[in-house]
């Protein structure tokens, strides 16, 4: 375990040299939030109105949280890294080291995410407080619960994106798979809560990765209750185990097919 913490630490050290890049990312976060502020302002005729169980403030806080999760994930960078590692054969060095590639990726990418998460969270909370002048009530249990749920969501996301990237072992270009996944998460999970979709779709979405990677932590933040916390942890726990096993399985199958020509 110590070695994986060291991988995490090394990646964190690397990323500390790129604070400026993260700051540039702030701009796109601000633009996104600005668009949704205006959109929901327009849809809600009056701030006290409740649509599908959400007040306007809750709605905006929901988007702030899901956007924090998505922005800090750095999904495109992760996908590109894995596809490159497999295609260019850079994965060779990873294979000759006494660690597992999947866990290596998980911990090193958590190093990327952690720093971003802290910075984007400060920004997101700042925007929310300045604009809405209120924040959903916080308690110690709630803060810990939401943070843990965010951590689980990020781990599941990293594992699933890794799994998609590892398809590069089998097909020439795995990036379209990632494109589909990221768009699904963005449109269905980030912008609108599950309650906004047709009733027949909701149960399906509740058990899809979308619930585990973006809905659950955001919903907990805007509308906390112990049964919701328990439900979130159970579903996320199951997803964690499934994603972990699935990614390892794809890696084991794929690495046997590895072709490294030349050099």
């Amino acid at each position: 375990m110590k070695k994986y913490l060291y991988i995490f630490k090394s990646e964190l050290m690397t990323n500390l040299q790129y604070i400026f890049d993260i700051l540039i990312g702030f701009i796109s976060y601000c633009i996104m939030i600005f668009i949704f502020l205006n959109l929901w302002n327009y849809i809600y005729s009056d701030p006290s109105e409740v649509i599908k169980g959400y007040t306007m403030n809750q709605m905006i806080w929901y988007v702030i949280v899901t956007e924090i999760l998505w922005m800090s994930l750095g999904s495109r960078k992760l996908n590109r890294k894995i596809c490159n590692d497999v295609r260019s054969g850079n994965i060779t060095y990873n294979i000759t080291k006494p660690y597992n590639y999947v866990e290596y990726i998980l911990f090193s990418h958590l190093g990327v995410t952690t720093l971003k998460f802290v910075m984007v969270t400060i920004l997101g909370l700042g925007i929310g407080l300045i604009y809405l002048k209120s924040i959903p009530t916080l308690s110690f249990v709630k803060v810990i619960g939401v943070l843990l749920s965010c951590l689980f969501a990020t781990i599941i996301n990293i594992l699933l994106i890794t799994a998609l990237g590892l398809f590069s072992f089998f097909i020439e270009d795995a990036s379209p798979l990632f494109w589909l996944y990221s768009k699904a998460i963005l449109v269905v999970g980030t912008i609108f809560p599950i309650e906004f979709f047709p009733a027949f779709l909701q149960p399906i979405m509740k058990y899809s990765p979308i619930y585990a990677v973006s809905y659950a932590p955001a919903k907990l933040f805007v509308d906390f209750s112990y049964p919701k916390l328990l439900e979130a942890f159970i579903i996320q726990g199951i997803y964690l185990i499934v994603a972990f096993l699935l990614t390892h399985w794809i890696y084991r199958k794929g690495v046997k097919k590895l072709n490294v020509n030349g050099g």
């Binding site: 090394s10 690397t14 060779t92 060095y93 050099g263």
Partner: peptide
């Protein structure tokens, strides 16, 4: 992996920013 070491002249294993 604990017993062997590898150097591939055309690949990189070092963390370039450290």
């Amino acid at each position: 992996a604990y017993e062997i070491g590898c150097v591939f002249g055309q690949k990189e294993q070092l963390w370039t920013h450290l």
